[in-house]
Nucleic acid binder design. Structure first.
Length: 289
DNA sequence: CACTTGACCTGTCCGC
DNA sequence: TGCGGACAGGTCAAGT
């Protein structure tokens, strides 16, 4: 899915588009995409006004005036796209084909607002979901009780990263970075990118890292995530933001999807291998075990 | 408990 | 052109 920069890009876009709009209807075509009762939907969603759009880890939270929230996880292929039905995009416009063709066969949930605009939740692989629940209960969900710190928060620093990682001494650093209970928001793209930046091999066991490596890894994580947010995230196959636009980070990525190309630091050919059960990109010269 | 693997789904690409 | 298998940005449950 969308990782932290992609979800954050959607969040900031949605914030500009749907705040203060009133929800009048919701439809869905796949029950697991919207696992909520019709009664709750009628009582707490219909007629509700959008108050705020938040993000925690890779989860989006749309708060409603009814003290309920829509909790949304895009998983691997989820999209959340806003479309004003009164606007038609002409041929040649960058968003032409995508927005004018909504809904399409991957559309799972459609939320309609009182001004005839709509929010489309598309999800080809059907892993994602939209859950309606009381805002106050979100923090009691297992995921939110266990999830690690936000890497871009002002309280996060290299010592906290070290302390969190030290809970997973015998696993690889790549598996640990992907573990949302250690640190929130990192996925396969930004794990590979930050490990390359820190010159750490993804298979390195956490117990073999030293303080110098923790410090540089911390810096690289923050740097890579911030850069990606500036570039609107990474579009590999499916990702688009709330306005239907792709992100451009992958044009600047150092190793992710760059197998067979030269390492920008040393020129060695970048390889793709498997670590923690995931496709993993690295420079075999810069990142040694 | 720590850690790894399979399952959830659809679509695409690659080798035969 | 068709078919099987591997793989794809994430997270759980179930296994060792």
């Amino acid at each position: 899915m969308p990782e932290l920069p992609e979800v954050e890009t959607i969040r900031s876009g949605l914030e500009k588009l749907i705040i203060s709009k009133k929800v009048i209807n919701l439809t869905f075509d796949w029950p697991k995409s919207y696992p909520n009762s019709l009664n709750d939907t009628k009582s707490f969603l219909y007629g509700a006004e959008i108050i705020s759009v938040r993000r925690r880890a890779k989860v989006l939270l749309i708060d409603l005036s009814t003290q309920y929230s829509l909790v949304i996880h895009l998983k691997m292929t989820g999209q959340l796209v806003y479309k004003d039905e009164t606007v038609r995009f002409g041929a040649g416009h960058p968003n032409d084909s995508l927005l004018n063709n909504l809904p399409d066969k991957s559309t799972r949930v459609i939320i309609s607002f009182d001004d005839d605009s709509k929010l489309y939740f598309n999800d080809q692989r059907k892993f994602g979901w939209v859950k309606l629940m009381p805002t106050i209960e979100i923090k009691n969900l297992d995921f939110f009780k266990k999830v690690g710190p936000e890497p871009l928060s002002s309280e996060f620093n290299w010592l906290i990263l070290k302390q969190r990682l030290n809970k997973r001494q015998n696993t690889t650093i790549k598996a640990a970075l992907l573990d949302q209970t250690i640190l929130a928001g990192i996925g396969n793209i930004y794990a590979d990118e930050s490990l390359w930046g820190a010159k750490i091999h993804p298979s390195t066991l956490v117990k073999n890292l030293n303080d110098k490596e923790y410090k540089i890894l911390y810096q690289e994580i923050v740097k890579v995530l911030k850069l990606s947010i500036e570039l609107g995230g990474s579009t590999d196959k499916n990702y688009i933001n709330a306005e239907g636009k792709k992100g451009s980070y992958l044009a600047f990525s150092k190793v992710f999807r760059k197998e067979g190309q030269h390492c920008p630091r040393c020129g060695t050919i970048i390889i793709k291998t498997r670590v923690a059960g995931r496709g993993t990109h690295l420079c075999p010269n810069c990142q040694k075990l």
